[in-house]
Amino acid sequence: MSLLRQIGSELYSMFVSDAVMTALTLAIVLAAAALRHFTGTSPTLVGFGVLLGCLSVLIVRVLSYGLKSK
Protein backbone atom coordinates (compact mmCIF):
# COMPACT_ATOMS: atom_id res chain seq x y z
CA MET A 1 0.00 0.00 0.00
CA SER A 2 2.85 2.31 0.88
CA LEU A 3 4.50 1.58 -2.48
CA LEU A 4 1.26 2.33 -4.36
CA ARG A 5 0.92 5.59 -2.43
CA GLN A 6 4.49 6.49 -3.33
CA ILE A 7 3.85 5.72 -7.01
CA GLY A 8 0.70 7.86 -6.91
CA SER A 9 2.58 10.68 -5.25
CA GLU A 10 5.43 10.39 -7.80
CA LEU A 11 2.97 10.50 -10.72
CA TYR A 12 1.21 13.55 -9.23
CA SER A 13 4.45 15.44 -8.63
CA MET A 14 5.60 14.66 -12.19
CA PHE A 15 2.88 16.95 -13.54
CA VAL A 16 2.14 19.24 -10.60
CA SER A 17 5.38 20.69 -9.28
CA ASP A 18 3.64 24.01 -8.59
CA ALA A 19 -0.16 23.79 -8.41
CA VAL A 20 -0.71 27.43 -9.46
CA MET A 21 1.66 27.10 -12.42
CA THR A 22 -0.08 23.89 -13.51
CA ALA A 23 -3.54 25.49 -13.20
CA LEU A 24 -2.51 28.60 -15.16
CA THR A 25 -0.85 26.51 -17.87
CA LEU A 26 -3.94 24.34 -18.24
CA ALA A 27 -6.13 27.47 -18.36
CA ILE A 28 -4.01 28.87 -21.22
CA VAL A 29 -4.13 25.62 -23.17
CA LEU A 30 -7.90 25.23 -22.67
CA ALA A 31 -8.50 28.87 -23.64
CA ALA A 32 -6.43 28.31 -26.79
CA ALA A 33 -8.42 25.17 -27.64
CA ALA A 34 -11.70 27.04 -27.08
CA LEU A 35 -10.57 29.96 -29.25
CA ARG A 36 -9.53 27.55 -31.99
CA HIS A 37 -12.76 25.56 -31.98
CA PHE A 38 -15.39 28.19 -31.24
CA THR A 39 -14.02 31.27 -33.00
CA GLY A 40 -12.28 31.90 -36.26
CA THR A 41 -8.97 32.80 -34.60
CA SER A 42 -5.96 32.03 -36.79
CA PRO A 43 -4.28 28.78 -35.72
CA THR A 44 -0.83 30.37 -35.92
CA LEU A 45 -1.96 33.14 -33.57
CA VAL A 46 -3.31 30.51 -31.17
CA GLY A 47 0.00 28.59 -31.30
CA PHE A 48 2.11 31.65 -30.54
CA GLY A 49 -0.43 32.65 -27.86
CA VAL A 50 0.15 29.31 -26.10
CA LEU A 51 3.93 29.80 -26.37
CA LEU A 52 3.87 33.34 -24.97
CA GLY A 53 1.35 32.43 -22.28
CA CYS A 54 3.43 29.48 -21.03
CA LEU A 55 6.64 31.54 -21.08
CA SER A 56 4.91 34.26 -19.03
CA VAL A 57 3.52 31.78 -16.50
CA LEU A 58 6.94 30.17 -16.05
CA ILE A 59 8.75 33.48 -15.57
CA VAL A 60 6.13 34.91 -13.19
CA ARG A 61 5.97 31.76 -11.06
CA VAL A 62 9.74 31.30 -10.66
CA LEU A 63 10.30 35.01 -9.96
CA SER A 64 7.48 35.18 -7.42
CA TYR A 65 8.72 32.02 -5.67
CA GLY A 66 12.30 33.27 -5.73
CA LEU A 67 11.47 36.72 -4.40
CA LYS A 68 9.19 35.31 -1.67
CA SER A 69 11.97 32.98 -0.53
CA LYS A 70 14.44 35.83 0.06
Binding site: S13, F15, V16, D18, M21, C54, L58, R61, V62, S69
Partner: peptide, 21 residues
Protein backbone atom coordinates in the same frame (compact mmCIF):
# COMPACT_ATOMS: atom_id res chain seq x y z
CA UNK B 1 -0.24 18.94 -22.55
CA UNK B 2 1.43 16.26 -20.38
CA UNK B 3 4.86 17.02 -21.86
CA UNK B 4 4.34 20.74 -21.28
CA UNK B 5 3.33 20.27 -17.61
CA UNK B 6 6.15 17.80 -16.96
CA UNK B 7 8.77 19.90 -18.78
CA UNK B 8 7.74 23.13 -17.04
CA UNK B 9 8.06 21.36 -13.68
CA UNK B 10 11.63 20.31 -14.45
CA UNK B 11 12.49 23.73 -15.87
CA UNK B 12 11.04 25.55 -12.83
CA UNK B 13 13.06 23.40 -10.43
CA UNK B 14 16.25 23.76 -12.53
CA UNK B 15 15.86 27.58 -12.64
CA UNK B 16 15.32 27.81 -8.86
CA UNK B 17 18.31 25.53 -8.22
CA UNK B 18 20.56 27.45 -10.65
CA UNK B 19 19.62 30.70 -8.92
CA UNK B 20 20.42 29.20 -5.50
CA UNK B 21 16.82 29.51 -4.26
Amino acid sequence: VLLLLFGMGWLRKAILRSAGI
